[in-house]
């Protein structure tokens, strides 16, 4: 019995150091995916200005988050939703779960990011999914790094590439969309050739990058589907000094797919005023400049200055592949099915 007492005591101690739940009068709830991050002070500034507590509701990855929002359409879980991207947006728009808001800040955002003309979903940031390669690996072997999608099916790049399964990974899906846009009707031939050239498929970005990409792991694949922002991120998180990022990005026209993330007000919010304030805040320069080093994507607002490491080491593709969100939504299932048939079966 004494031991049980000790256990209870221990438990009590642990419980005592858990933070107490805040008890504020007004709460603005934002539903977002689990990768969302931002500076503490940035949020604090908003909370102070509007005398509100911002409650973040982590809801799994973007796909799961959207599902929850749709399933709870009658009884919204939050006031806003952030993190729906252009591969998912049609599904959300069709479900009619958003309230439009024509934010004045939209004026500072380039037109090509604004995919919903009714302003139900407003662009916050974007990132390009591109092929990354290990500069050191290619330099050591005297092989030129790839410069286009077509290179990957050449014999000298045999067995060098790792990609993610579009059925289970967001960059995997994005990369597949890039090939669809780039190769059109023959996109599956490209994948058949890639398969013949010994492409490796993993389920997620983590396994590809940390499990097989030569730069980041013990793996044997120097080419990986990752983000255009990965090289500056590698520099940023390294103790070493670099003149050039250790990994390169293939930015040839049509070889990257641009993921744009949106924010929207959920239908039925009792805090419409605060929700609008939040969107204006999110699209404002202060928040936008805080984005790159927290979420490693690019701010949508043109006036936002990029942090030094992004300015020096990031490459932004000029002409990423473009696929209409509605088309994505309509065909995604078939495309993935065909992709699986071609690459995995």
């Amino acid at each position: 019995m004494k031991r049980v007492g000790i256990l209870l005591l221990l438990f009590g101690l642990l419980a005592a150091c858990a933070p107490a739940a805040p008890d504020e009068p007004r709460v603005l709830t934002i539903m977002t995916h689990n990768s969302f991050d931002i500076g503490e002070e940035t949020i604090a500034a908003f909370e102070a200005e509007h005398d509100v507590t911002v409650q973040i509701l982590f809801s799994g990855d973007a796909g799961l988050m959207l599902n929850q929002a749709v399933l709870n359409a009658e009884n919204p879980l939050a006031d806003l939703i952030y993190g729906v991207d252009n591969t998912l947006m049609s599904r959300g728009l069709e479900a009619g779960i958003f309230e439009p808001y024509d934010s004045p800040l939209l004026a500072q955002i380039p037109d090509h990011l604004e995919l919903d003309r009714e302003h139900r979903l407003l662009p916050v940031d974007y990132g390009d999914v591109c092929l990354n390669y290990d500069r050191g690996w290619f330099a050591a072997r005297g092989v030129p790094p790839p410069t286009s999608l077509e290179d990957l099916v050449q014999p000298e790049y045999r067995g060098l590439t790792v990609v993610e399964n579009p059925a289970s990974s967001s960059p995997g899906l994005a990369f597949m969309l890039a090939t669809i846009d780039h190769f059109g009707t023959v996109w599956l031939d490209y994948w058949a050739a890639l398969r013949a050239n010994d492409v490796l498929v993993t389920e997620g970005w983590e396994e590809a990058y940390w499990g097989y990409f030569t730069y980041a792991s013990e793996g044997d694949r120097p080419i990986v589907v990752s983000y255009a922002s990965s090289p500056p991120v590698e520099v940023y998180f390294s103790a070493e000094e670099f003149d050039e990022a250790p990994t390169g990005v293939v930015v040839a026209d049509g070889s990257c797919f641009r993921q744009i993330e949106f924010v929207g007000i959920l239908k039925g919010t009792p805090n419409r005023d605060l929700a609008e304030a939040w969107i204006d805040f999110m699209l404002g320069v202060a928040f936008q400049e805080d984005i790159p080093l927290h979420m490693f994507v690019f701010p949508a607002n043109e006036n936002a200055a990029l942090p030094d490491v992004f300015a020096r080491f990031a490459v932004i593709p000029d002409h990423p592949a473009i696929v209409d969100p509605a088309e994505i939504d309509a065909n995604r299932d078939d495309w993935i099915e065909q992709w699986i048939e071609t690459v995995l079966r």
Binding site: G63, L64, N67, R91, N165, S168, S170, L200, I336, L344
Partner: peptide
């Protein structure tokens, strides 16, 4: 590596990326 799938994996696919 995508070559195999259990029911649980299919449920996951059908809840997330191929809803």
């Amino acid at each position: 590596g995508g070559h195999y799938a259990t029911l649980e994996v299919e449920i996951f696919y059908r809840t997330t990326y191929r809803p």
